[in-house]
Design a binder for these strands. Structure first.
Length: 579
RNA sequence: GGGUCGCUAGCUCAAUGGUAGAGUACUCGGCUUUUAACCGAUUGGUUCUGGGUUCGAGUCCCAGGCGACCCA
């Protein structure tokens, strides 16, 4: 008795080794990897032949009665997302891309079907964890409790997982972790997988529609010498061997138009666009657009195309044109409302911009209507647009085409055929968001040059979003571009709408997030050259130039090196990275 | 750029300025119809970081980091 007790104590002590921190869990699982190898198994397999996916089986055997079995042999694979283990019986829930199915693991059956592995059931019991990838072969059985199961005869551990999954019940809700470790989010939140599956269906549907109408997709450069086609700040990069600055594209417009000049009549590109701007629920610095150009068409044709593409995508993905977005009912059944910017501004605010003779007059009226007029707003056209953005946009819940924009905010658009000062442009708004933008494209090379030079002047004056003059594009126009309708659709925003996602980050698999910045760790100072040498905790080393000795002394004596540095040095002195 | 809120165990969350806790996961033992399995036991912490106030700080103050939402 006494001996038993001391033995138990020793055992308890032995078992009391720490197994709960992340590192300890990982160490325990690495041990299991070793033990599997000792059993002659490979914890990282090469292949597993499948015959079915989980959802397929669920559907096929939906009518199987509890207790009933089918002798057909199936092979499936997936991740263990739950384990319920008894002495000689176990139930695992296996998740593959399509869904989940239960594995019914009976010791007797497994041991007899896997004679080469002496303790096949115990290995399963001891060495598998939630998170492991498992392959299973067996027959179909609905258990007496009514759960459709694969009655396993053979299994293989295909991949041993070393890290624990989030809580099976509460899952992963921390938004930051969900975005930073999207793979974990995808494992435990099935609706996230559904969102990205739906995204793929939407882009496939759009490409299919365009293909059926004989459009072809042509890829244009991401790296460009001049970033044009939109008003946006570009990312700048550098080509070492060519020794030239390059910009990441902010639009695909100017190159697709070159293709129209070259003789293609229906072209498009669906691809990534980069804009060096802020991050919000509606903006990610890299996002996806589709731009479509059709020769001999105008913006009216583009309206029909827009309705057709979006309605078809919704029908393909949702099976309906009526949907709910964030508790608002949206009806995508064409035709959609078409209203000019002048009309809608008057409708919402009561301001009739046709009545204003001068900018001053308009400004006075706008300010009375509580519209904030920014400094750089200097024309009636800009004021109209400002009023529209401030008062109207949010109210455009159902799909609405806003037509006929002021010329000064549309440098690539053909003048309106009957309304002076306006251009033939529309934007599509749904749930208050700009979702598409389209013009009768400007084809007059002289007019285009004047407008781009106006943009370039703004850029020279410090407007970081203004466009430069793309001489080669102008040369292309001088060879002659046929009348052309152009259309751009924000794919991310469309996907948000059709997946009922409140934030653009929900529809981008890996949204851009700030990395936690490096912390200054140690410091050195060259008094003669006034160079401050800082080493960061990530190993990088920077030289900060022209740093006064007094600053160095304060830094040295600061309670926290890292914070003094962030506050008083980081952005205040020029620096070179040396390591 | 401004404001509000948040950051504590792998995950989800507690904790009047006074011994950092629960559930779950992990580990060990038991169990052939479970499905948030169950029963029993053990374990697990840089409370985001750096300062400050205090006899004493997860909590109060200052600064910083990251995130969410709102505004411009």
């Amino acid at each position: 008795m006494a001996a038993d007790q001391s033995q138990n104590k020793a055992k308890a002590k032995n078992n009391a080794q720490n197994t709960s921190t992340l590192e300890e869990i990982r160490a325990t699982r690495l041990e299991k990897v070793d033990q599997l190898k000792q059993e002659g198994l490979t914890p990282y397999a090469y292949k597993w032949e499948l015959t079915h996916q989980a959802a397929e089986l669920q559907e096929k055997y939906a009518d199987l009665e509890p207790g009933e079995e089918v002798e057909t042999e199936v092979k499936i694979a997936g991740r263990i997302i739950a384990r319920r283990v008894f002495g000689k019986l176990a139930f695992f829930n296996l998740q593959d891309e399509s869904g989940t199915i239960q594995l019914y693991l009976d010791k007797k059956r497994i041991q007899s079907q896997m004679p080469d592995l002496s303790s096949a059931f115990n290995i399963l019991k001891k060495y598998t964890d939630v998170g492991d990838i498992l392959g299973a072969k067996g027959t179909i059985k609905r258990t007496e409790k009514g759960e459709l199961s694969v009655y396993v005869s053979e299994y293989a551990i295909l991949t041993k997982s070393l890290l624990p999954l989030p809580d099976k019940w509460h899952g992963l809700t921390d938004t930051e972790k969900r975005y930073r470790q999207r793979y974990v989010d995808l494992i435990v939140n099935p609706d996230v997988r559904e969102t990205f599956r739906r995204r793929a269906k939407i882009t496939a549907s759009i490409r299919r529609s365009l293909d059926e109408q004989d459009f072809i997709e042509i890829e244009t450069p991401v790296l460009q010498g001049e970033a044009g086609g939109a008003d946006a700040r570009p990312f700048v990069t550098y080509h070492n061997t060519l020794q030239m600055e390059l910009y990441l594209r902010i639009a695909t417009e100017l190159h697709l138009k070159r293709l129209i000049v070259g003789g293609f009549e229906k072209v498009f590109e669906l691809g990534r666009i980069f804009r060096n701007e802020g991050v919000s629920t509606k903006h990610n610095p890299e996002f996806t657009s589709i731009e479509i150009y059709q020769a001999y068409a105008d913006y009216s044709d583009m309206m029909e195309l827009t309705e057709n593409l979006i309605a078809t995508a919704a029908q393909d993905v949702l099976g309906t044109l009526k949907l709910i977005y964030q508790e608002q009912e949206i009806d995508l059944t064409p035709p959609w409302r078409r209203v000019t910017m002048h009309e809608i501004v008057q409708e919402v605010t009561g301001l009739d911009f046709n009545n204003f003779g001068t900018f001053e007059e308009g400004k006075k009226a706008a300010e009375q209507a509580e519209i904030g007029v920014p400094q750089d707003c200097k024309t009636l056209g800009q004021l109209l647009n400002e009023t529209f953005e401030q008062k109207v946009e949010d109210t455009l819940i159902q799909p609405t085409f806003i037509l006929d924009y002021p010329k000064e905010i549309s440098p690539l658009t053909k003048p309106h055929r009957s309304k002076p000062g306006l251009v033939e442009r529309f934007e599509l708004f749904i749930v208050g968001r700009e979702t598409a933008n389209s013009f009768s494209e400007l084809t007059d090379p002289i007019d285009q040059r004047e407008r781009l030079e106006l943009q370039a002047a703004k850029k020279a004056a410090g407007d970081l979003e203004a466009q430069g003059v793309d001489e080669d594009f102008l040369a292309a126009l001088e060879y002659g571009m046929p009348p052309t309708g152009g259309l751009g659709i924000g794919i991310d925003r469309l996907v948000m709408l059709l997946t009922n996602s409140p934030s653009i980050r929900d529809v981008i698999a890996f949204p851009l997030l700030k990395s936690s910045s490096a912390v200054a760790q140690s410091v050195d100072y060259d008094a003669e050259k006034k160079i401050l040498n800082i080493e960061f905790n990530n190993g990088s080393v920077y030289y900060y130039n022209d740093v006064p000795e007094s600053v160095y002394n304060e830094l040295k004596n600061a309670p926290s090196l890292g914070q003094y540095f962030n506050q008083f040095i980081r952005d205040k002195y020029g620096c070179d990275r040396v390591k």
